[in-house]
Amino acid sequence: MNLRVLKRNIPFAATAVVCVLLYVFGAVQFYDENFFSLRVFINFFYDNAFLGIAAIGMTFVILSGGIDLSVGGVVGLVSVLLAILMENHGAPPVIAIPLVLLLGAGLGTVMGVFVHYFALPAFLVTLAGMFFARGMALVLQYESVPITKHVDSINSTLSLPLGSGLQLPSSALIYLGAFVLALWLAHFTRFGRNVYAVGGNEQSATLMGLPVARTRVGVYTLSGFCAALAGVTYSLYTSSGNPNAGMGLELDAIAAAVIGGTLLSGGVGYLAGTFVGVLIFGIIQTTIIFQGTLSSWWTKIVVGGLLLLFILLQKGIQAKKLRPKN
């Protein structure tokens, strides 16, 4: 029994091991530079909050057997919109932020409808969504603009002091909050379980009488919402509205989910895994920055390599499962 549980969790276990190894490597290698410190640890979450939030939505989409390539574009669009609303039109954050979140969710809903009701391939619809969002962002605002109003006050109100001069900054706080909510959604609501069911076997889910349409559209809506929240977080983090924000974020988000043990075929995976996947991402990034001589492009290549490694691992496990037991 215990062995079986262990087997089922090999991908997740592998992720955890890789994460610890990378961290220990960084901690030993850059001991003098204080790699092993709470400040650096907090920064893993602070610097990658928007990635983490987008990855949460992506995990739900992948669990349901789909994919969402639009998240990066949505981050750009939301970032620009937020800047325009707050800077140019003087909208207070309590209006501007819910408005852009609603917009992101709405975009997701539209894509979900296309995917589900018109049976268009998810990657195509969301690729078009990515172009639409990125294009609109560039149309609205060709260059990055600073956001001067409200951002500082939001950042200072939302941060959580941890003592000894350290604090959990707003974006990290939003990320952790979103993560806890997502855990609840995935494991303690019917919606979450239906996502697993739809991704596990859509035909069965239909015949079981589960609300497949609502679940599928809901998943893309959720992902759109998460992408928008990631866009808000990005703007808070950089105090700017940038139409090019989140370029290539979709792959990072997919990578985080897959490295975290979510099967691309859908139906299997954990949000906790994604959380660790994002952490791995942060550790690699920080390590490369600490290293100093390596180009930041190495992050992309290393992540691509890790992604490949974990996909092959998944394939290996699946192939083993397919072999008949004796």
Binding site: R190, Y196, S204, L210
Partner: peptide, 20 residues
């Protein structure tokens, strides 16, 4: 058989009708 292979027996029986 139309069940969700990766979920537990219990969940397969109650899916969509769980109480909160």
């Amino acid at each position: 058989v139309n069940l969700i292979p990766h979920l537990s027996v219990a969940e397969n029986i109650c899916l969509g009708r769980q109480r909160s």
